[in-house]
Design a protein around this nucleic acid. Structure first.
Lengths: 159, 159
DNA sequence: GGTTGACTTAGAGCTGACTCTAGATTCTAT
DNA sequence: ATAGAATCTAGAGTCAGCTCTAAGTCAACC
């Protein structure tokens, strides 16, 4: 079974332009061509494409993905290097997810901030008396509610 | 207490160039200037800067962050819009984290793939007999191990 | 009083990742 | 057999998000 660039693009939900660009950047050295020079993707190529899509999603730059594919094409001597590459990006991705969790926590505290302001009809309930500056104690209040067992998600919900 | 652009840049670990760029894009309308026209950041400005950094980390484009700051400057009539904005990006961030979790799962399965190949000294243990194509059953084998209670993280570890 | 260093602006330059155009070729369906 | 759709390449264009340069201002120190 073989597939045209259009079929592969549809399956992966990316444009044929992008696939040609990836090819130009050396990400698709495994793709065959027919007599007319058109790309013919094999079933096994989807194993590579899956990896490419995964690394993209993980935020790995195209050039580095190219290096990984190079390793794949070189053979069994690069097995350790390929493992190390994946382990490295696993660590980076875990670090990123931890940062995103903090970001999410922050968004939830700010939602609570606006929810309470909305209930009061004005943001000024959070200001230091007589100023336009946010009282630093407001964040502490939120943190205390969470420490007392409230869910940040629930605290931010309206209704 | 007030801070120069350089001090703020150092505190946030971003370059003064970037801060000026954000200002140009309308993200810092709240920053005062001294008589000489130099930016003077106030303590309260860090509340805005925190939000900007958070939204950046969440992947919100600079222009959209500018719209949010506009809402903030407009006053209490925009409280609901600000809440909705944050709630929207909370949802988007949760969706992104779910995708990243799948990406992480994939990286772990591939680590296991290379770990087992390394143990055998050759990737060909994963190929269909007599071919250079990966046996689709290999992934199923990994999934079975996970279904039987193995941890994907442990399965990918070497030693 | 002169040098150094941090700051100012406008605007140019850079990078990554596409995205598209032009012009030619090939495949598919009637 | 021919129209229309899909593909090919080379190379140009686009966009976001910085990043830097140039030319000038200003404050601090020796």
């Amino acid at each position: 079974m073989s597939y045209s660039i259009g079929q592969v693009a549809a399956k992966l939900a990316i444009s044929p332009y992008t696939l040609r660009y990836y090819d130009k950047e050396g990400l698709l050295p495994f793709v065959d061509r027919n007599e007319a020079g058109r790309r013919r993707f094999k079933d096994n190529d989807f194993n590579f494409l899956e990896v490419i899509v995964c690394l993209k999603e993980a935020g790995v730059p195209v050039k580095q993905i190219g290096s990984f594919i190079d390793l794949c094409m070189t053979g069994d001597t690069t097995l350790q290097a390929r493992y190390d590459f994946l382990a490295d990006h696993e660590q980076k991705l875990m670090a990123k997810m931890a940062r995103l969790q903090h970001t999410l926590d922050f968004l939830r505290w700010k939602k609570w901030y606006y929810k309470t302001a909305l209930r009061a009809g004005t943001e000024s309930i959070h200001y230091l008396p007589g100023t336009n500056q946010v009282d630093p104690a407001v964040h502490a209040t939120f943190e205390q509610l969470v420490a007392d067992g409230a869910s940040p998600v629930e605290l931010g919900k309206i209704e």
